[in-house]
Amino acid sequence: MHDLEKWIAEWRKAAATTVSVEALDELETHLRENTEQRIRSGMNPPDAFQRALAELGNLTRIASEFRKLDEPLWLPVKLAVGMTALLALIAAISAIAHFAKWSSSVNAVDPSRSSPVLAAHIFTVTLGYTLTLLIGGMGICFVSQRCLEDFSTSRLHSIARVSLVLASIALLLTALGCLLGAIWAKIEWGRYWAWDSKETGGFSVVVWLACYLVAHRFFKNSERGVLAISMLGNIVVSFAWFGPQVGLHQYGTFMLTIAILVNVMFFAIGFVPAGRLRFRNDG
């Protein structure tokens, strides 16, 4: 048996990069079962192992069959990731341009209006809010497609993982944005926080994103539910972004109403059992 352990260790070492660890564990169990069965039936151990190895088949071919299971990224996920990268690039360029403009106008009448702190606050909050909307947008796409066809487990895992990563970045950016906003308010208005509508909105988005991450952490096996609730973030961001404009600008009320109606509708659809809204006739 000592030799068997050595042979298996060598086989694992050679196969380590071809398939996932779990698949390798499963193949190893199979190899052991087959080898031991042959030894029990009287075959000598080296022959038993070689025979079992031959019956297991070529690892490269097995690995290529496993690779066929990996589905390409879902289009909305690609779009969300692409838009995040684009937004980050635009934000970085804008921040540099803004800083250059501020540097050349330090002696202007009111330099604080374009201070780097304010600029950084606007960029981080805008990015954080936009990312939260993208996560919610992915949730809407998820619910819509689920009405037509269910997702495979691997695809569901990958969507949930992307949603989790984006939410973590959004939380970091929004929290940083709120902090920078508070610092700017102290410089400009002499106080850090006054719970005005924009501050409350920003804080709500931070709380929402934290709750969303907690939901990901505690409901690992209910990815569908977690992705379905992601669109509630759209409502929270809509309140934070458009809520303070209600009364001052008509589009604020309009956008807020539309955002709430659309997201509540998709949120409700998200909890209809999978398949109930499919019109395909399988009979």
Binding site: E26, H30, L56, G57, I62, E65, F66, K68, T153
Partner: peptide, 17 residues
């Protein structure tokens, strides 16, 4: 069957629940 080829099929079935 080539023994190892069973496992991608099992994983495929699992993927489709």
């Amino acid at each position: 069957w080539t023994d190892g080829m069973l496992y991608p099929v099992l994983h495929w079935l699992e993927d489709r629940r």
